[in-house]
């Protein structure tokens, strides 16, 4: 089964994968918003999502470390990784202390901040072209770039909010 979704919050995405697993659908692959599921025993797996530090340098190292630790790497897309463990093997949480949780949200925040800046640049270029040529196509591009820029900015804020929550917890 395939489902198309766009998530901008990895915690909600994780909850959704968990819900799918409890209904007997295990994520097998992720690509560009398309999630491929295969049947499983209801609640068989616990899913976690992570963002790697580097563009490609530590991909293999990370994957083999996880496999060695009894974690299955389900799908990798870009720097995003989908991981799972059988629920019968006990609880599964990638990050168990506040510092490493803050680090993870910082990675995600920086990732989307870069995406926001890129998209903002795109927006300005398209806006400029639209104003000059008065072409409908450029207006559409400009609006699309603007919408994505706002979306990315929201993720940056969300991460910032979560980081501040965690820092407060830490005291």
């Amino acid at each position: 089964m395939k489902k198309f979704r766009l998530y901008y919050d990895k915690d909600r995405e994780q909850d959704w994968l968990q819900k799918m697993s409890s209904e007997g659908w295990a994520l097998k692959k992720f690509f560009l918003g398309v999630y491929t599921f295969v049947p499983c025993k209801p609640g068989e797996y616990i899913y976690q999502i992570d963002l790697l530090e580097n563009w490609d340098g530590d991909k293999e190292d990370f994957a083999s470390f996880m496999e060695d630790s009894g974690v299955e790497v389900v799908s990798q897309w870009y720097r995003w990784v989908y991981l799972r463990k059988k629920a019968e093997d006990g609880p599964f949480e990638m990050y168990t202390d506040i510092d490493s949780k803050i680090n993870q949200y910082n990675r995600i925040k920086n990732f989307f901040r870069a995406a926001f800046i890129l998209e903002m640049g795109g927006f300005l270029i398209e806006m400029n072209a639209a104003l000059r040529t008065k072409s409908l196509l450029f207006w559409i591009f400009a609006i699309l770039a603007g919408v994505f820029a706002i979306l990315f900015l929201r993720i940056v804020w969300r991460c910032q909010w979560k980081i501040e929550q965690l820092q407060r917890e830490k005291g």
Binding site: F65, P91, F92, M94, Y95, T96, S100
Partner: peptide, 12 residues
């Protein structure tokens, strides 16, 4: 103290 694999990877 149960170390999450992500926490351990970063720490190592």
């Amino acid at each position: 103290v149960v170390l999450g694999p992500g926490t351990l990877y970063g720490a190592i």
